[in-house]
Computed example of a mutant assay.
Amino acid sequence: MTNWASLRSLAIVVLLVWGGSQALSWWQDRRFAEAVRLGSQQHELVVFSTDTCPYCARARTWLNAQDVRWRECHVEHDAACQEAYQAQGAPGVPLVRVGSAESGAGVLWNLGFSPAWVASAMAKLDAQQPATQGPAQRPAHRPSADTSPRP
């Protein structure tokens, strides 16, 4: 009898932990979605992608589901997109750009799509915007496979 009671208790604890982690994940996703949706009204969001990239498809789906203002730049179909992509020296896609040189706040790049990174980048640009009056500067780093959030 005590074995069944212990197993039942263990199952309840496991379900509670799993449910809590799911709730936390849902809450974080909603929080990032709202930050990205609001930030996309002020900052340009561009995703450099290819047709065969599953990570690009996942980013596309997430951005569209959250009603985010964004632009997709197909590296395989658009010469200007391919040129901008190659200028960054990124080893893969999706390559995400937040901001524009014309905005005066700067441009941030990331290899891989992460809603948390996009929200953070938009917040950084918001913090820089009032202080930056001159031309935008490119970040010192370039996207690399080592810093990609993708598995």
Score class of each variant (00 low, 15 high):
Ala23Gln: 05
Gln128Tyr: 10
Met122Val: 03
Ala23Ser: 03
Val13Gln: 05
Ala11Ile: 01
Val13Phe: 12
Ala127Phe: 10
Phe113His: 01
Leu7Thr: 08
Val107Ile: 10
Trp117Phe: 14
Ala80Cys: 04
Gln22Asp: 07
Gln82Lys: 14
Gly89Thr: 04
Ala105Asn: 07
Gln41Pro: 08
Thr2Lys: 08
Cys73Lys: 05
Asp51Lys: 14
Pro139Met: 12
Ser21Trp: 08
Ala57Leu: 12
Val36Pro: 02
Ala57Cys: 14
Met122Trp: 03
Leu45Trp: 04
Gly39His: 04
Ser25Phe: 03
Gly106Gln: 01
Arg97Glu: 09
Gln41Arg: 13
Pro54Met: 08
Arg8His: 10
Ala140Cys: 14
Ala145Val: 13
Ala79Trp: 13
Arg37Asn: 04
Val96Gln: 05
Leu24Gly: 10
Asn64Gln: 13
Leu15Lys: 04
Thr2Leu: 10
Val47Arg: 02
Arg60Ser: 11
Ser120Thr: 15
Val93Trp: 00
Leu95Trp: 00
Trp117Glu: 09
Arg31Asn: 09
Leu108His: 02
Ser120Trp: 11
Gly92Gln: 00
Thr2Glu: 14
Val75Gly: 04
His77Cys: 11
Leu108Trp: 00
Pro143Arg: 01
Thr147Gln: 14
Leu15Ile: 04
Arg8Gly: 10
Gln88Ile: 07
Ala84Arg: 08
Ala23Phe: 09
Tyr85His: 06
Thr2Phe: 11
Gln133Asn: 15
Trp4Ile: 11
Ser148Asn: 02
Ile12Thr: 06
Arg37Cys: 03
Glu44Asp: 11
Arg31Gly: 05
Gly39Asn: 01
Ser9Ile: 07
Leu24Cys: 12
Tyr55Phe: 12
Ser25Pro: 03
Val14Asp: 04
Arg58Gln: 13
Ala5Met: 10
Val46Gln: 01
Trp70Glu: 09
Ala33Glu: 01
Trp62Gln: 03
Arg8Glu: 06
Val46Gly: 02
Cys53His: 00
Phe113Gln: 00
Gly20Cys: 02
Arg142Cys: 07
Ala123Leu: 09
Thr52Met: 09
Thr132Ala: 15
Asn110Trp: 10
Pro91Val: 06
Arg37Met: 07
Val46Trp: 03
Gln133Lys: 13
